Every structure is written in C-alpha cells, then in structure tokens.
Amino acid sequence: MSPRRSYDQYCSAARALDVVGDRWTLLIVRELLAGPRRYTDLHADLPGVSTDVLASRLKDMEREGVTTRRRLPPPGAAYVYELTGRGRELLPVLQALGQWGQTELGERRPTDAVRAHWFALPLLRSLEVEGLVEVRLEEGDFHLYVGAEQGPVYGDGPAPREPDARLAMDTDTCLLVGRGELSVPDAVRAGRIEVTGDGAPAKALREA
C-alpha cells in the first residue's frame, strides 16, 4: 500500500486535507451519511467516478479510520462500507461546505447529474423539528432523520416506516430553503411546502 500523500504542514486544516482532501472522498462521505452502502450502490450514486478511483478512495478512507467495511449476514452476504464515529463527525463540515457552495449552483447544466437525496443535507440543516421526515421532490423521494445522534442522517427513497411528517415541494423551493433564503415555516405558510402527517413535527410545521 502506497504511503499517504501529505502537505507536510503543521496545520490542522492541512492535516484534515491530508485525510479527506482527495477528489471524491467527501462525496463518498456524503453517500455514507445515509448508512451502510454496497460498493455497487456507491458507484451508481457517484456518476463520473471510475471503479479504480472509488476502490482506491475507500481503501484510503478505511486506512485513515473514516470508514469501515463489514460483511452482511446471510442471506445478504455482501460487503458494505459505513462511516466510523470519526467519519460521522464530517457531517457539519459537509453542511458548511454545501452552504458555502450554494451560490455556485446557478442553473442546472445539461451535463449535471442529480439525485433527489443530494438535497438532503442542506434541508436537514434548515429543519427545526426532530423525527423522521419524508420529502417528495420532482426528482424523487428521500427521508431525513432530523436530530439523530447515531446511525444514518438521511436515506434515499420513501421512509422505511410511517414518517412523523411528509413534505412535498418543488426543487426551486428546496434550493431556496437550503440556501437560507426561505425558511421552512414561511414556505409552508406560502403554500410552497405541503405538510401531511399526524406526528408532532407535522403539527409543529403546520402551526409555525
């Protein structure tokens, strides 16, 4: 195994970039914040990454203690990758980076890939309720574990159980909320977010 490349600078930011500064590494973290993922699932949701680069990054991340790999029990019997506690500590880093990069989005380019769950982290930062929240966009559904301290913070597709609230909105509204230009309560009052569900979070959002 080749030695880790380093900036050789006695600076915490430089040391952090030694670990997660390579291309694709933080996007792999973004995907693994949804919980354990198989290699094939990661590759499918990281359009543009080569199989060699993905395998190399995963090995580096495991070596650095950011991820771990384990084998699922039968009948699954497949290997999955997941974040360690140290890896999960990158959530606020990714959220801050995403917030900083919101102004770079602009109009979607014809070559831009998109997955519904890529909107999860900006929206997660904007919700002030706690519980399981399902979100419906034109691009698809995802769900958020708002306030979760352990386990995944979001997931692709519909919620695995009855959510505490369901939010339906268009992509423009989701982008505005993620950028902090529109609050969730204001979007609900303006009719830009439809809230359904009987849980406390749904009631709180409707009454805000």
Rank of each mutant, 00 (worst) to 15 (best):
S2E: 02
S2W: 00
R5T: 02
Q9I: 15
Q9G: 04
S12C: 05
A13L: 14
A14D: 09
A14S: 14
A16I: 15
D18R: 13
G21K: 15
D22R: 07
W24H: 08
T25D: 15
V29L: 05
V29H: 00
R30L: 12
E31S: 08
L32Q: 03
L33N: 07
A34M: 04
R37N: 03
Y39F: 15
T40S: 08
T40C: 01
L42A: 08
L42D: 04
H43V: 13
A44P: 00
L46G: 13
V49R: 01
D52S: 13
D52P: 05
V53N: 03
A55M: 04
L58W: 06
M61S: 04
E62H: 03
E64R: 02
E64M: 11
G65E: 02
T67Y: 00
R70T: 14
R71A: 10
L72H: 06
L72Q: 14
P75I: 05
Y79F: 15
T84Y: 01
G85S: 10
R88G: 12
P92D: 09
P92Q: 13
P92M: 12
L94V: 02
T103H: 07
E104A: 15
L105N: 10
E107N: 12
P110R: 03
H117S: 04
H117N: 01
W118E: 14
A120D: 03
L121K: 02
V129R: 06
V129I: 07
V133P: 05
E139L: 10
E139Y: 01
G140V: 11
H143I: 06
Q150A: 15
V153F: 09
G155E: 02
P158V: 09
A159C: 09
P160T: 11
P160I: 12
E162P: 09
P163I: 01
P163S: 02
D164Y: 04
R166I: 14
C174H: 00
V177H: 04
V177K: 02
R179H: 04
L182D: 09
P185M: 08
P185I: 07
A187M: 11
R189E: 08
R189G: 03
R192T: 01
V195K: 08
T196F: 10
A200M: 00
A200Y: 00
P201N: 07
A202Y: 09
K203L: 08
L205G: 14
E207V: 04
